[in-house]
Amino acid sequence: MNKKVALRGVGIVVEQSRKVGLLSRILFCCKVIGLFVMQRSKLQFQEVEESASHERALNEGAVAKFKKFRGVHSSRFLSHRAQMNAYNEAMTRESRKMPCFTGEDSMGNLVVRMETENIGEGYEPNPANPSDPRYISEMYGFEMRFDFETQEPWALYPIEKA
Rank of each mutant, 00 (worst) to 15 (best):
V5D: 02
A6M: 12
V10D: 08
V10F: 15
G11R: 11
I12A: 13
I12G: 03
I12P: 03
R18D: 15
K19P: 00
K19H: 08
V20I: 14
G21A: 15
L22F: 11
L22T: 11
R25F: 09
R25K: 11
L27Q: 09
F28W: 13
F28G: 09
C29V: 12
C30W: 01
K31D: 14
I33V: 10
I33R: 00
V37W: 05
V37N: 02
M38L: 04
M38E: 05
Q39P: 00
R40M: 09
S41V: 11
S41K: 13
K42G: 00
K42W: 04
L43W: 03
L43A: 10
L43D: 10
L43G: 12
Q44V: 11
Q44W: 04
F45S: 10
E47K: 05
E47Y: 02
S53F: 04
S53H: 07
S53V: 07
E55N: 04
R56I: 12
R56L: 13
A57Q: 09
E60P: 02
A62S: 07
A62D: 12
A62H: 08
A62E: 10
A64D: 14
K65D: 09
K67P: 01
K68C: 02
K68D: 01
R70P: 02
R70V: 06
V72F: 12
V72C: 08
H73S: 09
H73N: 14
S74D: 13
F77H: 07
S79T: 15
R81Q: 07
A82S: 11
M84F: 12
A86Y: 04
Y87M: 08
N88L: 15
T92L: 11
T92G: 05
R93P: 05
R93A: 07
R93D: 04
E94H: 08
S95T: 12
R96D: 08
M98G: 00
P99L: 00
C100W: 04
T102R: 03
G103P: 00
E104Q: 01
S106R: 00
M107P: 00
N109E: 02
L110Y: 06
V111P: 03
V111I: 00
E115F: 06
N118V: 03
G120M: 01
E121Q: 07
Y123I: 06
E124G: 05
E124D: 10
A128E: 15
A128N: 14
P130I: 15
P130G: 15
S131Q: 14
S131N: 13
D132C: 09
D132V: 11
P133C: 11
Y135P: 03
Y135M: 04
Y135E: 11
I136T: 10
E138R: 14
E138F: 06
E138D: 12
E138S: 14
M139Q: 04
Y140F: 15
Y140Q: 07
F142G: 02
E143C: 08
E143L: 09
R145I: 02
F146C: 01
F148N: 10
T150P: 01
Q151H: 12
Q151F: 05
